[in-house]
Every structure is written in C-alpha cells, then in structure tokens.
C-alpha cells in the first residue's frame, strides 16, 4: 500500500521538478518535496507505524530510492536551468567590440630617435659602446685637434655657427660629431670601440634635403694593429646588420683632414642601386696625437654618417624639414 503511495509521490515529484521553469521555482519545489513537510518526510514518519519488518525494510528502501531520484532530478534540472539562465544572461550582455573607440594612449617616438636607437643597437651588437659630447664646442675640438688648423680650406666648407662666448671665434656649434673622438681618446685608454651619435649644426639655409640642425653618428676604433681592412670589414658588418643580408658595401677614396687614407662608403641595395652613406678613414696620426695617444703605438679608424638620412630613407620622407615641424599629423604616422 505504502509502496504505491511512494511511487505515486515520486512520479508527481519528478513531474513537478521537470515543470520548474526557473531556479527560484526549482528551489521552492525542492523545499516542498524534500522538506520536513514534504511527502517523503511524511512517508518516513509513517514508516515506524508499519507492522511488518519486511514492509518497513521495503518501504525504507523505496523511500531512499525515491528521494535519491528526486535529488538527482533536482540537480539535473538545476544544471539545465542554470545553463539556460547563464545563456540568457550572456546573450543580454552582448557587446559590439568594434564600437570601442577609446583613443590609443601611446606616444610616438620621433623617427630620428628611432633611427638613432636602431643604429646604437647594431653597433652595441658589434661590441661598441656609446659616447656623447657637448653640442657647443671649442674651435680646438671641432677643427684644430682634427688636423684642421685655422685658415685650413676645409673649414670654409663647414659653414660654422660661431657664438659670442669667450674670445671671438673660440666657441662654436659643432659642425660634426668628430670632436667627440678627441674627447673619448682623452678620457679613455685604448682599446676604444665607440660610436658617438649626436646633434650637429651647419649654418646653411634649410631645404628639402638639408637642415641647419641635424644628427650624425660617428664611429671610432683605436687599438693596436688597426688597418684599412678592419674599417672595410666593420662597414660591411654594419651594412649587413643594419640594412640586411642582401646589402653590400664599398669604399672609395676621398678626403678629410682628420683621416688618411680617407674614403667614402656606399651601400648597394638588393636592387643594385648604390647609395652614398658617409665618410670614413684611418685616423690621421695628428688626430691620435691630439687625443693624447702615441700614433706609433695606436692606430684606428673612424666613420660617420647622417642619422636623419637613415630615417628619411626608411620612411620615404620627401622633405626633411617636415621631420622637425613637430606637427602631430607627422609624428603620429610613425
């Protein structure tokens, strides 16, 4: 008799669980079905009144089984409802992520700085350190120590800015980074493997390819037994490291007062074009001497070229003046 009631209650309970359409309803159903006043609790209370031990045992077993089945059904239904409700919630939270228009908060490094740092990195990889020097220089460091005495004709090619500082003609804005060579030799004991990037000045009217204020990087090696072949090898290594494996370099004779022999170096693009890059040469014995070193003991090479030019070529800038316009429309392109 009781078993029939339990079976009926179980059927009804399972229907009830299945019918719950929300977790709230399910919670209510759970309380009603399995709570103290629920049908199974009542059956359990009636168990004690049963006479036959066999009936007690069978009834207890049936009750256990029923409550377990109800619990399992509740858990399954709960999971289903939770999943459905989570699905509704997720759908309700849908966002169009392409609507997001928060302006990127990233500054733009100047392309000259970018080129400058790339060049430094390449030379650091070749075992060089980086030296810097003042932009305002004495005539001695900028010219005389570089084997360019007063009235040397090469001076007239430099279009120098002179400053009203100290005795007239003694102070100027450096026309190249080469004075740092002298400062490095004066302060360091060889071996010296240094690059010297920096700002330089020429007193000329700016146009699309020339500026009065621009940037150069200079290299200086002073060691025992340094030869022109070492210069050529270093230029080639730099060419490959900076421009890429498809590029090669060449040296051809040129003239600078501070190097002897002197050269220009060009690089050849994979397409076969030659680009003139910069000047180089074996440091002149007079320059080694000006640096406080003995040219019989130490020899070296130096090279230099424009950083702005590297930036200009890399990004195809048509007019170098625009690089210094400080126009955000320019700066933010890079």
């Amino acid at each position: 008799m009781m078993l029939d009631h339990v079976a009926t209650a179980l059927r009804e309970a399972l229907v009830r669980v299945e019918a719950a359409s929300s977790t709230a309803e399910l919670r209510a159903a759970e309380t009603e079905l399995l709570g103290k006043r629920g049908p199974f609790a009542q059956f359990k209370a009636q168990l004690g009144a049963l006479a036959s031990p066999a009936d007690k045992r069978d009834g207890g077993r049936a009750l256990n089984e029923a409550t377990q089945r109800v619990s399992a059904a509740l858990a399954a239904r709960r999971a289903d409802l939770a999943a459905a409700e989570r699905a509704i919630q997720l759908e309700a939270e849908r966002l169009d992520l392409t609507e997001v228009r928060i302006a990127p908060r990233r500054g733009h490094a100047h392309i000259v700085t970018q080129a400058w740092e790339r060049l430094e990195d390449v030379f650091i990889g070749l075992g060089f350190q980086v030296a810097e020097g003042p932009e305002v220089e004495t005539d001695w460091y900028n010219f005389e120590a570089l084997n360019t005495p007063p009235n040397h004709p090469a001076r007239s090619e430099h279009d120098t800015f002179y400053l009203d500082y100290g005795t007239p003609g003694s102070t100027l804005l450096r026309t190249h980074t080469s004075p740092v060579q002298i400062r490095v030799m004066q302060t360091l004991t060889p071996p010296i493997y240094m690059v010297m990037p920096g700002r330089v000045f020429r007193n000329e009217t700016a146009d699309a390819t020339h500026l009065a204020v621009f940037h150069q990087i200079e290299g200086l090696v002073v060691d025992r037994g340094i030869t022109l072949a070492h210069l050529a090898g270093t230029i080639e290594a730099f060419t490959k490291a900076f421009f890429g494996d498809g590029f090669t370099s060449r040296l051809r004779p040129s003239y600078f007062p501070f190097t002897e022999p002197s050269g220009e170096f060009d690089i050849r693009t994979p397409r076969g074009d030659w680009l003139e890059i910069g000047g180089c040469g074996m440091v002149h014995p007079n320059v080694i001497r000006a640096g406080g070193l003995d040219p019989e003991e130490w020899s070296g090479f130096a090279f230099g070229f424009g950083i702005d030019r590297m930036a200009k070529e890399r990004h195809g800038v048509g007019d170098v003046r625009e690089m210094y316009s400080n126009d955000l429309r320019f700066l933010e392109q890079f």
Partner: peptide, 19 residues
C-alpha cells in the same frame, strides 16, 4: 683599389652596451 683591400672585423675587447 680600395675594393681589393681585404675585409676583417677587428675583435672588440670592449663589451657593447649602453651606459
């Protein structure tokens, strides 16, 4: 001819790095 002069990379005994 500068182009006929060999090419050798000197062995820098300095450690390449930034200050």
């Amino acid at each position: 001819g500068y182009g006929r002069i060999g090419r050798a990379v000197p062995n820098s005994t300095m450690h390449g790095r930034l200050s």
